[in-house]
Amino acid sequence: MTEALATPQTTTTGGNGRRWKTDRFGLDLDLPRPPGEHGRIQGMPYRPVQFDADDLPTALRRAASWLQETELWLGEAVDVIAVRLDFFEDEPQSYAVKLLCAEDDLDGLTKATSAVAE
């Protein structure tokens, strides 16, 4: 575990009034860390982006269209760590495609950083 990960950065108060210390990534300092060199908790936050539809091809097309539009806006490929498919039998929009994307791509940080570099 690196010092940066172990250093408390803030005290967080939950809805129940409980207070705890978190590291700079918002992780509870008491959270068990993976042992040794072959495990780690990554500091990169990810954000799910969901596309609902009545059928799977439509949900996939919506996800693909959003990815293309976002990559044009960003100026590079969006960092997608995972794709998840959900099916809800009793819902009108029964298919959901979720893309787990890097938060720094979605908050514009990558775009702002590349604009400054140019």
Rank of each mutant, 00 (worst) to 15 (best):
E69P: 06
A115N: 13
G15R: 15
Q93S: 08
R19C: 03
Q50M: 09
S65T: 13
L109Q: 12
S65A: 14
A53V: 05
E76S: 04
P45E: 09
L74C: 06
G39V: 10
E71D: 10
D55E: 09
A77P: 05
P45A: 14
D55C: 00
L100C: 01
E103V: 08
G108R: 11
E69Q: 15
E69Y: 05
L29E: 10
P32N: 12
G14F: 04
F87P: 06
V83E: 11
V116L: 15
Q42D: 15
T110M: 12
P45K: 11
L72M: 10
G43P: 07
G36R: 12
A63Q: 03
K98Q: 13
G17Y: 05
S65E: 13
Q93Y: 00
E37M: 09
D54E: 14
S94W: 05
F88C: 05
A115D: 14
R62D: 05
L60G: 02
R62H: 08
R24N: 02
M1C: 07
P34C: 12
G17W: 03
E103Y: 11
L27S: 12
V49N: 07
T13W: 02
M1A: 13
L27M: 15
I81T: 08
D30V: 00
Q9S: 10
E89P: 06
L31T: 15
L106W: 01
T58A: 10
E71G: 00
P35C: 10
E71N: 08
Q9P: 02
T22N: 10
A77G: 08
A53S: 13
E118A: 04
D105Y: 01
T11F: 03
G43I: 12
A96L: 11
L99E: 00
Q93M: 10
P8D: 07
A102G: 15
A59K: 05
L100H: 00
G14D: 03
E76L: 00
V80G: 04
E118N: 11
A112Y: 00
T113N: 03
A115C: 09
E103T: 14
P92A: 10
R19I: 01
K98P: 05
Q68Y: 03
P34I: 12
E3H: 03
Y46G: 07
G36H: 07
E37F: 01
W20V: 04
R84V: 02
G108C: 10
F87S: 06
D86K: 09
A112W: 01
D104C: 12
L29T: 11
A102C: 13
Q50E: 10
A117F: 02
T7G: 01
V116M: 14
L60K: 13
D55N: 07
F51L: 10
Y95N: 04
T11C: 07
D30I: 07
M44R: 15
P48G: 05
